[in-house]
Amino acid sequence: MSARFADKVILITGATSGMGRAAAERLAAEGAKLVLAARGKEAGDALVAGLRAAGGEATFVPADVTVETEAAELVRQAVERYGRLDGAFNNVGAATAMGPVTGIDSDAWHADLALNLSSVFFALKHQIPALHAAGGGAIVNNASNLGVTGAAGMASYSAAKHGVVGLTRSAALDTAAAGVRINALITGGVDTPLLRANLGPKPEEALRAAAAMHPLGRIAQPDEIAAFVAFLLSDEARFITGAALAIDGGLTAA
């Protein structure tokens, strides 16, 4: 595999599972120095150990990026350890409030917005100055297909992910002149532990139904998302910014 991220420092939130973990493995294999963040220290330490055993360079910082001070400290530690920050994949997110709009209480609404939108805002607020100081770089925010569509019973999650798309576009315009590119991923179904944990009592049936929703007839594997993240963070994508880019098996085209 190429070393296109040699000497580049990349931060990943939501790094210990699914798409975040796959991105960490891909970027480490391409030479990146990684700063990985999630709430669970044990899983983070295990991931770092595995990456280092494979020849990669990574460090783990336990962080809840729904809290601005922790998002800021994460960036500070990245720069303190490696001297710079060149890119980030803001991957934290999950649907936490399910059901019709009339059944979502205020606390659940705000919790969904905190996890899926405020976390990205806090990340960008503190990542962008570090990328400016490094002379530029790239950020990818995970918005999901519900950043451009709706779904019954997922109002707060969809509202938050639509917010991520708008935030991405506005921040990209704020930072373009300084050489910082910011894009959003529009992902479809991805075979992650989180997805499988929410499949209900008939998981195989639910997986088949999810696959059937996608014109390509399947859901993605995390490494497919990771490859696209790596492309967007690389200099090969140096003319792409402010975009919401679908990697969804044709889901949103329908």
Rank of each mutant, 00 (worst) to 15 (best):
T192W: 02
A227D: 13
D105L: 09
G44E: 02
K41F: 05
S106G: 05
K33M: 14
G153D: 08
G189Q: 06
L131A: 13
L233V: 13
T241H: 04
A23P: 03
T96C: 06
G55A: 14
Y157W: 04
G163R: 07
V79G: 00
G200E: 13
A71S: 15
A155D: 04
R26V: 08
G242E: 01
L233K: 12
L115F: 04
L185V: 07
S158P: 04
A71W: 07
A246S: 14
G137V: 08
K41M: 08
S170I: 09
A24Y: 06
A46S: 14
R196A: 11
H214V: 04
M213E: 15
A43S: 14
A95W: 00
L185K: 02
P201W: 11
G250A: 13
L115P: 04
A244E: 06
H126I: 07
A29Q: 12
A220C: 12
G31K: 04
G14W: 04
R169W: 05
L207T: 10
V9S: 05
T13M: 07
A226H: 05
R21C: 10
E236R: 13
V79C: 02
K8N: 12
D112C: 13
L51R: 03
A38I: 00
T175V: 03
L207P: 03
N91T: 09
P100V: 12
P215S: 09
A3R: 14
R39D: 00
H126K: 07
L232V: 06
R4I: 09
D112L: 12
T252M: 07
R4K: 11
D105T: 09
T241D: 04
L36K: 00
L173A: 11
E80R: 12
D86Q: 11
G135W: 03
G99W: 11
A49R: 14
A133D: 14
L194T: 14
L251H: 12
A95E: 15
E57N: 11
T16E: 02
K202R: 14
T241E: 03
A210L: 15
A177N: 13
V148T: 14
F228W: 12
V190F: 05
E224A: 10
L216F: 11
L173H: 05
R81Y: 01
L124D: 03
G20A: 02
G250V: 13
A43M: 04
R76I: 00
A237Y: 08
R21K: 15
L194W: 13
T13C: 08
I10C: 04
D174W: 01
N145R: 14
L167F: 10
E80I: 00
I12C: 05
P222T: 10
A253D: 08
A212S: 14
T192V: 05
E68I: 00
E68M: 01
A114D: 15
I128G: 01
D191L: 15
V190T: 15
A88E: 11
D112P: 12
A138W: 03
A159W: 02
E30F: 09
A138C: 12
V140G: 10
P193G: 12
H126L: 07
P193H: 10
V65F: 01
A3G: 08
M19L: 11
M19S: 10
K202G: 03
A130D: 02
P100C: 10
A95P: 06
M1Y: 08
L173I: 06
E73T: 13
D7I: 04
